[in-house]
Design a protein around this nucleic acid. Structure first.
Length: 290
DNA sequence: CAATCGTGGAG
DNA sequence: TCTCCAAGATT
């Protein structure tokens, strides 16, 4: 089987331009890779770096994290956002400890069964921690393929059959090379073929990019919903959880009242945090991390 | 399938 | 200032 010019070019580019990230080093453990994948779900690399280092120092193995209260995971998550990921990472550590002898599983199906692990993360861990041949489709890869191959500025809203087929078709047959291709095309999307202001002048595959050859036509698909934040429950929950995270122990409800003005919304959000397992109520009515 | 779920840096 | 959006998962 012949590797396509796209794949070969991206592999060469990656060899010269890959960032040196802790979870990519040869000595990085599967656990380090798994932790990074959880943290990188919707959070930029630069913000993940210091937290990832702190986690791996404090909890070098899944069993170390599993032995802690889940609230410690939430606290150590800091301001990475979407703190339910911290809860799921803790739950994944428990599952790994109890069901996999403390070793991060290597099969896609076993990974997929872990809390907080979806299709992307399962494929990414199998590929990056274990060197397997997997179709890894994240937002970066999908955007690169949409542009370079399909000729559209952005991929569809959700992963399509056609995208899976394309990913499978491009995937090199040799597992180690396939794994490198997966991280390489992801890196190209993160550094060059960006969503906003792509750096086509510096792109190694600009010459064979279908989107460029078509004249870089503007995106004409359905408009993506704008992400509002100010005034939302997400912001309210973030404020409330920040109070709990920054307090050494239980917090009286009056202190949470200061974090958000609208009574009804604050109470609803507080209840949802408890329902999600991100907060707990003591017998005396004070709130704390679980 | 669409809504929900945080946070902060860049332009 | 304001818009965009970053290695998604879950319901």
């Amino acid at each position: 089987m012949t590797t396509s010019p796209l794949v070969e070019t991206v592999l060469r580019w990656y060899d010269e331009n890959a960032r040196d990230l802790p979870w990519r080093r040869p000595e990085a453990s599967p656990w380090s890779v798994l932790v990074s994948e959880f943290m990188l779900q919707q959070t930029p690399v630069v913000r993940v770096l210091p937290v990832h280092e702190a986690w791996l120092t404090r909890w070098p193995t899944p069993a170390d994290l599993a032995a802690e209260a889940s609230g410690e995971a939430v606290r150590a998550w800091g301001r990475l956002g979407y703190p339910r990921r911290a809860l799921r990472l803790h739950a994944a550590a428990v599952a790994i400890t109890e069901q996999h002898g403390g070793e991060v599983p290597s099969s896609y199906d076993e990974l997929l069964a872990l809390p907080g692990v979806g299709d992307y993360t399962a494929a990414a861990i199998a590929a990056f921690a274990y060197g397997q041949r997997q179709v890894v489709l994240d937002t970066n890869v999908r955007r690169v393929l949409a542009r370079a191959v399909t000729g559209t500025e952005f991929p569809p809203r959700s992963v399509t059959r056609a995208e899976r087929a394309l990913g499978a078709e491009l995937l090199p047959s040799d597992p180690p090379t396939a794994a490198t291709w997966s991280v390489a095309v992801m890196e190209l999307g993160a550094l060059v073929c960006t969503a906003d202001r792509p750096r086509c002048a510096d792109c190694p595959v600009a010459g064979l990019c279908a989107w460029r050859q078509a004249g870089s036509p503007a995106y004409d698909g359905p408009p993506r919903p704008v992400q509002t934040y100010a005034g939302t429950d997400r912001q309210c929950r973030g404020r409330l959880l920040a109070v709990l995270r920054d307090a050494p122990g239980p917090v009286a409800e009056e202190r949470l009242d200061l974090a958000w003005d609208i009574d009804e919304q604050r109470e609803r959000c507080l209840a949802s945090l408890v329902a999600d397992g991100l907060a707990a109520v003591d017998a005396d009515g004070r709130y704390r991390l679980p």
